[in-house]
Amino acid sequence: MNDTRLPELSHADESAVRGLYHRMLDGWNTGDGSAFAGPFAGDGEAIGPDGSRYVGRSAIAAEFGRILTEREPAEYVARVRRVRPLAPGAALLDAVAGLVPPDAEDIDPALNALHTVIAVNRGAGWRIALLQQTPARFGARPDLAAELTAELRALVARTPGPVG
């Protein structure tokens, strides 16, 4: 019989993966495209909420740096919902995120998103291999959209920035 159970993810590895995600969002929140891209692997990829794909840490830094300098960015608030192993040296992070527009005190529910991160450790520490940003519209499920908005608003009321 094959054992198909996934390997355990150590507390240190889970913390490292969470840390990558928080550093990425901190880079956005400080308006620094290079800091945003810093946690990515050299060949990492980022897929934006509009479907745009950026391949390579330098391309991610350049594009997000351009975005961040063209306009004052909204600030991310986020909650990591789970981190789980995929295989030895690979993990999946699921998070929910909202954006507080400049000069606002509340998130814009139209900008709520689901973030999926694949992190890899190829022996030199954990890096982001893929960030997928998916708009959290929930189509015919306005109850789910309202629940997510309430969850993210609670983060804004507590403190701006990523949580968990």
Rank of each mutant, 00 (worst) to 15 (best):
P49V: 12
G98I: 10
L68A: 04
R71Q: 11
A74L: 05
N121W: 03
A97I: 09
S52N: 11
A90E: 03
A46M: 15
A95F: 08
P85A: 15
F138E: 07
V156F: 10
L68T: 03
P49W: 09
A146G: 09
L111T: 14
E72K: 11
V156W: 10
L155N: 05
L114P: 00
R81S: 12
G98W: 10
L68S: 09
A59V: 14
A95Q: 08
D143W: 10
P85E: 06
A136H: 05
A157G: 02
R122M: 04
L99T: 10
R127G: 02
V77D: 09
T134M: 06
A61C: 08
R153Y: 01
E147L: 14
G56T: 11
R141F: 13
A61Y: 02
D106K: 12
I67M: 14
A113L: 12
P102T: 03
P102C: 04
P109T: 08
L130K: 11
A136G: 09
R84T: 05
T69V: 10
V100H: 05
R82P: 00
D108I: 08
R81C: 01
R122V: 05
P109N: 07
F138M: 07
I128A: 11
L152Y: 10
L155T: 04
G48Y: 13
V83C: 01
Q132P: 04
E63C: 02
G139D: 13
Y54V: 08
S52F: 06
A87F: 03
L86C: 02
A146K: 11
H115Q: 14
E72I: 01
A46G: 07
I47E: 15
A113T: 12
L130Q: 14
I107F: 06
A61K: 00
T149H: 09
V156T: 09
A46I: 09
E147F: 08
D143T: 08
L144M: 13
L155W: 06
I107S: 04
P85F: 00
L86V: 10
A129Y: 07
T159L: 09
L114T: 12
A46C: 13
P88Y: 06
G51I: 08
T149A: 15
Y76Q: 06
R79K: 13
E151P: 00
Y54Q: 12
E45P: 02
R158T: 12
G48N: 12
E75D: 05
A119R: 03
E75V: 10
